[in-house]
Design a protein around this nucleic acid. Structure first.
Lengths: 254, 254
DNA sequence: TCAATGCGTTTGTCCGGACAATCGAACTAC
DNA sequence: GTAGTTCGATTGTCCGGACAAACGCATTGA
């Protein structure tokens, strides 16, 4: 009796376009990811073995492996030697990205609004200088913003940038997020150090955020680095915890 | 005039042991990582090209690339086509891992202590059932712990586990962390969904943590999944923000 | 009945090579 | 002097193959 055909990728219309400039492994991984997202590849199901999949697509095994590996890195697939590769069966969202409050709100359909309170050049304090790796007292760009959703204040954002890195236009800052402006300026964000904590609101903070003095606030400090390791931004943010919390998914590095 | 030798890896004593069961690419990546950590490879310096490095070590280029790639994934190196591979020059610590409060405290030299308040089997509430993917009202293991450092309460940890997954011994729970017990039981942690927020302490919480009622607290909810996507733990934790904050490094996924 | 062994399957590792894409710098032409 | 071009260097992608290691399962043995 022949083994029943149970390879779920056999039913999928997988194909690659060799004339496309998009790498073959990337084409394949995108199609597999779409199939998982769409539900064509159900959680727990085993992908057929790499050799056969490669043969079916007319690709080499390393190329197929590269495609699968990228999905393993994303946490969508799990490989087991001697068993096969199967779809992780869980509600995997995207793993933690370098999140931007603006993007988060927009993704939640909240139409964020921003009020720029301060946008000027100031001498760096010791804290800012240390975070950005510049001399204390040297010029840095300081931006203070109030972020609102549905007309209610959500967060107070204070950021410092190295002077001259970016031309910060107040109108642009009110129209979009800081990260988008930086990316648009050709800065490739690479990594960030974050610290998330909580504390009671001071009188000033309470007034800005329409909270009571002493109300709990969620705080976040972040230094962002570009791909050369240069610090490009230092942010000191406070959030109203009734309106915002940090949600993310993490993967264990193996 | 011959080009001056500027390849910093040439000075390094890189070598691989082919008789070792440790994969060659892993041996190489570990040595490179150690060299970066130790400062032998200074930030910004260019590694010699892959071909030459492979030849020097008697390895193939794919193997060398695999070693380098793993360090790129860790954020220690940056590749630039047409230029070379260079050491990221910044204070890159480890990127965010699936952190354990116990490990965090121990790493900080704080000698954590734990008091188990509750360790029993209870019917799952709707929230717990949804998080763990079990039926509401079915049996789940409930653990409540108080974590202390230097004799001061630091966090109140409430966790739920699927029944039968793990035999939780109270003595063991007081001696080490939950994650360590799970790993020791052969469970491979894979990913987690976290939510970090803040709120004011209730009277009960305040008493447990030696805080005042209404004091700001840092809260964290987490569902952890193993490598098959099964939920293996749901935790609802509160921390004293004067004693603890979440610090981590993130990388942008390219 | 239960443990140990053997075997096929599948992924993990590694090789050696080929060509393309991109970057930076030197060079050339205007 | 400046802009465009060419060229060498380096990484990116892809191939086809080989053997090792681990897993699950059936078989065998006590």
């Amino acid at each position: 009796m022949p083994k029943p055909e149970v390879d779920p990728t056999a039913q999928l219309e997988l194909r690659v376009d060799r004339s496309s400039p998009v790498p073959l492994y990337f084409q394949l991984s995108q199609q597999l990811e779409a199939a998982i997202e769409h539900g064509s590849l159900t959680p727990g199901s085993l992908l057929g073995n790499e050799i056969e999949l490669a043969a079916r697509l007319g690709l080499s095994r390393p190329t197929v492996r590269q495609a699968i590996q990228s999905l393993v890195d994303k946490g969508l697939l799990v490989r087991r030697r001697g068993v096969g590769t199967q779809v992780v069966h869980s509600q995997v969202k995207r793993p933690l990205e370098l999140s931007s409050l603006y993007d988060d709100l927009e993704a939640a359909g909240q139409r964020p609004a921003t009020t720029v309170l301060v946008n000027t050049v100031v001498p760096a304090t010791a804290e800012v200088a240390a975070a950005l790796g510049v001399a204390e007292g040297s010029d840095v760009q300081r931006v203070e913003r109030l972020r609102l959703a549905h007309g209610e204040p959500m967060a107070y954002l204070c950021n410092h940038l190295p002077s001259g890195l970016l031309d910060l236009d107040t109108a642009q800052l009110e129209a979009t997020g800081l990260y988008r402006l930086m990316r648009a300026a050709g800065i490739t964000l690479h990594s960030a150090r974050q610290s998330i904590g909580a504390r009671a609101a001071t009188a000033d903070e309470a007034e800005r955020l329409a909270e009571a003095e002493g109300a709990p606030l969620l705080t976040m400090q972040r230094t962002t680095f570009d791909d050369t390791g240069r610090a490009v931004e230092f942010g000191d943010h406070i959030y109203r915890p009734t309106r915002y919390s940090f949600e993310f998914q993490l993967l264990v590095r193996s």
